[in-house]
Design a protein around this nucleic acid. Structure first.
Lengths: 259, 259
DNA sequence: TTAATATGTTCGACATCGCCGAACGATGTT
DNA sequence: AACATCGTTCGGCGATGTCGAACATATTAA
């Protein structure tokens, strides 16, 4: 593992999370390196537009290059491309917003956001990062990860976003077992107060999890008895459809316990 | 300039432009390095989710981490935050789509896209990268760059997108002089056949160019006499409003020749 | 105004870290 | 079944990045 690249990535991470504008000294403290070392890394990243320096204050922030890369990632994402069609029909059928997401570290990244099909103003959440333990999409993905990665995810930090967020390893692993058994996940106001989510995993070749698709909306609309089951059916059918396009086997979400 | 970080950034750039999925050997060829060297860099980037490897084919692509960083960049962008309000009112006034962009290397990156205020379906172009020489936004930015950077931009590669794209250095520098004199740029089907653009620079503290704002739409609507001048006025007024919020002097787009 | 403390930046010597030629195992092809 | 090509591992040489100390500038305090 190449040291300087790792350090550069670490710096990008620090600039990306929380405070958007940091000085060399602050960054050096946060990553635990000498000031001149950080300076050299920053200058190199700046030369490629991955970070930018405010000419006035001298402080550093992320640069436009990372946005360009992010866009290129979306353009090349097979998961996103294949789910566009199904996300739209799922949104129509459910009458709710639809998110497609994938796992990155301990967070779930939204790859596609199909707006709820009414004409209200909604903000695009593509690129948003949500702790996996706080949303149905994350539960659906992690539950279907191979055991090694799953326990590693459980061992990581579990953020708390609302009073409902599940943050105990025992509770979460019980939830995950249920998700794995049922093939879908339901979350009630664990990420945002008032909002609930229903999600199912998207599998790819060899039945490895590529991401998840699900609906997000007011808990009062999604979770009422009757509606709820209809939502679950719509979500799991959409997930299965995308999975088949991604090359997964016919088995749907049922994973062998031995892999 | 740190060598390995530079090489890593180069690899990210290669993965981001054009073919989304490349093998180690192909990447090594494109960046001119030995195969094991590239392998090490890729493994490090992969550990931070900046690249991802297809488990089946072994080929590499960009990872979800870059999307997360791109989103963080947008969240922290002062230019974007300050132009949101004015972009919306400009879109209303002009009845056209509005783009806000900044320069990254030889490309212009779209930071904000306010849709044309009719209810047609439009695709979000945030994150898109356009060669600076092929759009009004790019002309507006580069024209107001300090001379050193401007000549460097002119010396770089000038892409051709349509038959109308200006690609000669002499022609472009004449165009830029006119843009600098007038304070706005007009482009007619140089980026996309059928589409035109009108843009003006956004200045920041000390009157350094931070980006540009402009309208983009069918040439048949934007460039008809009468309408055209009204568009120019709306765009330059919006640009000046954002510039003032960014801390630029009252001088508007008129730059001193001595700075 | 002056002094003091912060900042971002430059320099250079030591030794660590990363580079690449060569070899390996696994796939898929002829 | 022989071949070609892929991604990957190994290890020794040497270039490369690291960090302590010193610098110039900006901001704050007295």
């Amino acid at each position: 593992m190449i040291q300087s690249v790792e350090r550069a990535a670490h710096i990008l991470g620090v600039l990306g999370s929380g405070t958007p504008r940091l000085g060399v000294t602050e960054i050096a403290e946060q990553v635990g390196l000498a000031k001149p070392t950080v300076h050299g890394l920053l200058r190199t990243l700046e030369a490629h537009d991955l970070v930018a320096q405010d000419p006035g204050t001298g402080k550093y922030s992320l640069g436009p290059g990372v946005l360009q890369l992010g866009n290129a990632y979306l353009d090349g994402s097979e998961l996103r491309a294949r789910s566009l069609r199904w996300a739209e029909s799922l949104a129509q059928r459910a009458g709710e917003a639809v998110w497609v997401a994938t796992l990155s570290g301990s967070r779930v990244i939204v790859l596609h956001h199909e707006f709820r099909p009414d004409n209200t103003v909604q903000i695009l959440e593509v690129g948003a990062a949500i702790p996996w333990n706080a949303c149905a999409l994350g539960h659906a993905i992690v539950a279907h990860l191979p055991e090694g990665q799953r326990t590693r995810a459980l061992a990581g930090d579990l953020a708390r976003l609302t009073g409902q967020t599940k943050t105990t390893r025992a509770g979460l692993s019980r939830v995950l077992a249920k998700v794995r058994q049922r093939g879908y996940a339901i979350e009630d106001q664990e990420a945002t107060v008032g909002d609930a989510g229903i999600a199912a995993p998207i599998l790819s070749r060899n039945d490895v999890v590529a991401g998840a698709i699900g609906v997000v909306g007011a808990a009062g609309r999604l979770l009422v008895p009757g509606i709820r089951d209809e939502m679950v059916r719509a979500v799991t059918e959409a997930a299965r459809a995308v999975s088949r396009e991604m090359g997964a086997g016919r088995g749907g979400v049922v994973l062998s316990a031995f892999t």
